[in-house]
Design a protein around this nucleic acid. Sequence first.
DNA 1: TATTTCGTGCAAGCGGGTTGCAAAAAAACT
DNA 2: AGTTTTTTTGCAACCCGCTTGCACGAAATA
Lengths: 134, 134
Amino acid sequence: MEKLERILVEHKIRVTSIRLMVLKHIMAQNRAFTLADMEASLETVERSTLFRTLTLFLLHGILHEVDNGCGSKLYCLCAGNEQGVFLNHVHFTCYRCGRTYCIKDIDAMPALTPKGFAVEEVSCVMKGICPDCQ
Amino acid sequence: MEKLERILVEHKIRVTSIRLMVLKHIMAQNRAFTLADMEASLETVERSTLFRTLTLFLLHGILHEVDNGCGSKLYCLCAGNEQGVFLNHVHFTCYRCGRTYCIKDIDAMPALTPKGFAVEEVSCVMKGICPDCQ
DNA sequence: TATTTCGTGCAAGCGGGTTGCAAAAAAACT
DNA sequence: AGTTTTTTTGCAACCCGCTTGCACGAAATA
C-alpha cells in the first residue's frame, strides 16, 4: 500500500482518488492553505468536494485550522501523527508573501495567564516578515 | 460639552446623534462586540451606517479590532487614550457566554519568538471559561 | 446480484461585510 | 437669511467565502 493510502486508512478515512490527490497536494507543501488555494491547484475538483474533503481531514486530525484574521480559513497539516500535541502552537503570517507557517517548537501560551479565567485553548498568530522575504 | 462629545472631538470626528449613540453604547459595556451586536442594540440605525461609524472609530483609534476566529469581526474599545499601547494584548473568548474580553495587563508575545522571523504584531486569543461562567 | 451506504458535482443559499447612489442634514459661504 | 458645498445617512444591491440540498453514480455490503 502506498504511503498516502496508509495515512488515510490509519485515520479511518476511505480511500478515493480525489482524497489521495488532495492529501498528496497538502503534503507537498509545508504551509497553511485556504480552500481557494486548493481549488486553484486542483482545478478539476469541485469546490464543495474539496471543502468536504478538508472538513473530513480536519475531523480526523490530519489537518488543523488556523485563523489569521484575513477572512479565509486556513488549513494546516498536523505534524507527525501526534494529534493534539500542537494544539497551542504559534502561526506566523508574512506581510510580504502572505504565507502562513506553523511554528511548531514555540508554545502559544503567554508567560502570564489571566486571573480568574480558565484557559483551555490558545490561538496565537504572529505577523511580520518571514526569513524568505527578508 | 458632554464627555462623549469631547471624546469625538478629541479624535477629530464630527459629532452626530448617531455617533453619540454608538459611542455611548460602546462605553456602557466593557467587552468586544460585533457589528451584528450593535445592530441589535441600536435597531433604529441602519447596518451600513453602523458599519461606517465603527470603521471611522477604528480609523481614529477609538476602537481596535479583534479576530477570535468565530467568523465575525469584533470591535473593542481602546483603553484610555493611549493608542497603540495595547496593540499586542491578549483577548479571551468564553465558550459559555461567548463574550470576548480584553486582557489588558498581559502581553501577547510568547516567551520565545521564532528564529529568522521578524515579528511585528501578535494576535493572541485565549478560549475557555470566564470568571462569570465558572 | 440486490441493497444499502458513501462520494461527488451542480446549483443554490446564507451570513457577514462592503459599496454606489440619492436624499437629508450640516457646514461654509455669500 | 439664502445659496452652495460638503457630510452623513438609509436603502438597495452586491461580493466573497463558506456551506448545504439534492440527485446521480460509485463503492461496499448483504
